[in-house]
Computed example of a mutant assay.
Amino acid sequence: MAGELLDNKGRGDVSWSWPPIHPEGRKYGLIAVAVSLLFIFLDWEIVGWPLLALSAGVFAFFRDPERVVPQADDAIVAPADGLVSLIAQVAPPPELIGDDASGSRGLSPEPVTRISIFMSVFDVHINRAPIAGTIQRLVYIPGKFMNADLDKASEENERQHILIERPDGMQIGFTQIAGLVARRIVPFVKPGDIVAVGQRVGLIRFGSRVDVYLPAGTDAQVLLGQKIIAGETILARVGQQQLLEGLAQ
């Protein structure tokens, strides 16, 4: 049940259920179903039945499952489902650095750890807040639609930057990046909104990437090539630095 407190002592009550479809995707699924049924009605079954199967895929793409969100104060949770495709020390995007026209305090220009999460068309594409706090910035940048798995996609693709600040002043910046198939980034929040950790903040349609810029002095707690889950996987713990190694097998 959404909002129910669950813990590692076995307290709480859970059961499996089909994940709901986000309202943003229902219209696309229904359009696909209507078109496929039209072809079947016109005896173009060779087109209609494959389209009907495709419509099921459209509904599946927009699935919006509940997630059990860690509540530890030092935890930074994954904002996206997908594969950890890049981990690097880089400077944050210019749009998230320094004060903006509204007087919002931005990130430092010094290099920090960036974790890139690649979302395939088979992943859940609802993005979630990595920390609780106030949306300080939401900056949309038009651009290209090259492969989101490429490093230069962070600077050249269509993207949207989000900056969240906790009550204690700690900030996290992350970027939603469109890819080869993704053609629209849909925000659910606006500057000034207060969000909880793990709260839904946006959606990228049909395959894409999210970059997360960790605070200074904080290393990734995930490994390159690791599969992670939005709102559940802990990407990092604030102020913790250590080398982690994994074996692909």
Rank of each mutant, 00 (worst) to 15 (best):
A2N: 13
E4T: 10
K9R: 14
K9D: 15
R11M: 13
G12F: 05
G12E: 07
W16Y: 14
P20H: 10
I21V: 10
P23T: 05
E24D: 12
R26K: 08
A34R: 08
F39M: 08
F41N: 15
L42Y: 01
D43P: 14
D43G: 12
E45C: 14
I46Y: 10
G48L: 11
P50G: 09
A56F: 09
V58P: 07
F62Y: 03
V68G: 14
V68D: 12
V68Y: 13
D74Y: 02
A75G: 01
A88Q: 10
V90K: 11
I97Q: 03
L107H: 02
S108R: 06
E110G: 00
E110Q: 09
S116Y: 05
I117D: 04
F118L: 10
F118M: 06
S120K: 04
V121E: 05
V121D: 04
R128Q: 01
I131W: 01
I131Q: 00
G133Q: 02
T134W: 10
T134S: 07
Q136A: 06
D151E: 12
A153K: 02
I164T: 00
P167M: 09
G169R: 06
Q176G: 12
G179I: 03
R184Q: 14
V197D: 15
G198T: 06
G198M: 04
Q199H: 10
G202T: 04
I204K: 05
G207L: 04
S208P: 09
V210T: 14
D211T: 05
V212A: 05
V212G: 07
L214I: 08
P215T: 09
G217P: 03
T218W: 04
D219R: 11
E232Q: 07
G239N: 00
Q240I: 12
Q242E: 13
E245N: 13
